[in-house]
């Protein structure tokens, strides 16, 4: 282990934090900052999906529904009922969590594909609800004029200020996910992912932990939705179509299932990437589809695996030339 490795290992977290804290000052213009903020919101969403799908193995293809529930809840509470924004954002998470029970309770017995399809149906039903319940959601018109967040007399209207709000919540969920993985609850969830029958046999209360996983992940999905609503300040059903669920899923897999840095890079990367490819015109979405397939084929552990490898090389755990044969753990079925 060289000196460089030691310095890297001791400072990496602080460098990362410093970059994150100063980011709004060196991003060239407001537009890029907006895209980046959006990417971070999707990183939060991807991390919460990771708790449900990556850790517990409950594969959700309709996850955008909870993002939508959060966004609509916060939008409706603030514009129609005059709730203060921070309270509305919190309630958005709570309501998203509560509504997740309508999905998790009936689907408790379902596994694998069947569960995935139930979530897809749920996502589609929620979308139709946003679209057709005009009395509350304004239908296709969407809800305009959502107020910006105001806290302790400061308005977080500009992206450079709102960025920090997103950053705080992102760091919160990173810490939560990290602690969760090494806790008893987290290990129980992992065992359900690996094999639910075996987990049950060793005394894990499978329904209970599935429910906990649902509640936590949808709470943060709801918060992410509320962040989105107060950043864009306009919500319409089109932001919550099922194709968006597939996009979030892609973020998780491209980042590497179960990997925290992967989820962040996947969330930000796949939001920012299409924007940077705008000069390519329509062909960018073709490349986007192709790159998802390529990453799945050639990088089984996603970008998270790549980051881990670079991190290991820089901190001297692994030499550059010889690649250690890594056992890779992934859910079967």
């Amino acid at each position: 282990m060289t000196l460089f490795n030691k310095v890297y290992k001791a400072t990496r977290i602080w460098i990362l934090l410093a970059v994150a804290l100063t980011l709004p000052y060196w991003v060239p213009n407001n537009y890029y900052l907006q895209i980046f903020c959006l990417g971070m919101i999707f990183a939060i969403l991807t991390l919460s999906l990771n708790i449900l799908s990556g850790m517990t193995g409950l594969f959700s293809v309709g996850f955008i529904a909870f993002f939508g529930i959060g966004a609509y809840t916060s939008a409706i509470l603030t514009t129609k009922l005059g709730f203060p924004v921070p309270l509305a954002m919190f309630l958005a998470g709570v309501l998203s969590s509560i509504l997740s029970l309508t999905l998790s309770l009936p689907t408790m017995r379902l596994k694998g594909m069947y569960f995935a399809v139930a979530t897809l149906a749920f996502g589609e039903i929620m979308y139709q609800l946003f679209l057709n319940w005009t009395a509350v959601t304004e239908g296709t018109k969407g809800i305009k004029g959502i107020p910006a967040l105001e806290l302790f007399g400061t308005s977080f209207r500009s992206y450079s200020k709102f960025y920090y709000v997103i950053l705080v919540i992102l760091i919160l969920i990173i810490m939560l996910a990290r602690n969760l993985i090494s806790s008893r609850t987290g290990r129980a969830m992992l065992s359900i992912r690996e094999n639910d029958i075996a987990a049950e046999a060793v005394g894990v209360n499978v329904p209970q932990y599935k429910m906990i996983s649902f509640l936590i992940s949808t709470f943060f999905a709801g918060i992410a939705g509320a962040l989105y609503a107060h950043m864009v300040r306009y919500v319409s059903p089109e932001s919550f179509v099922n194709a968006e669920s597939a996009a979030v899923l892609a973020m998780m897999v491209v980042g590497g299932i179960g990997s925290i840095p992967g989820a962040i890079v996947g969330g930000i990367g796949l939001t920012v990437l299409p924007e940077f490819m705008r000069f390519l015109g329509n062909i960018r979405m073709v490349l986007y589809g192709a790159s998802i397939v390529l990453i799945v084929i050639f990088a089984p552990r996603g970008l998270g695996g790549l980051i881990e490898r670079i991190d290991n090389i820089l901190s001297g755990k692994q030499s550059l030339g010889v690649q250690k044969k890594q056992q890779h753990i992934e859910g079967e079925e």
Binding site: F59, A250, I257, Y288, G289, A290, I292, V296, P300, E330
Partner: peptide, 19 residues
């Protein structure tokens, strides 16, 4: 590969063909 990865690949194929 695991089912999850194959499922994502089919989503990618869908996006590719559509666009």
């Amino acid at each position: 590969s695991s089912n999850t990865r194959r499922l994502i690949a089919t989503i990618g194929v869908g996006i590719f063909l559509r666009n």
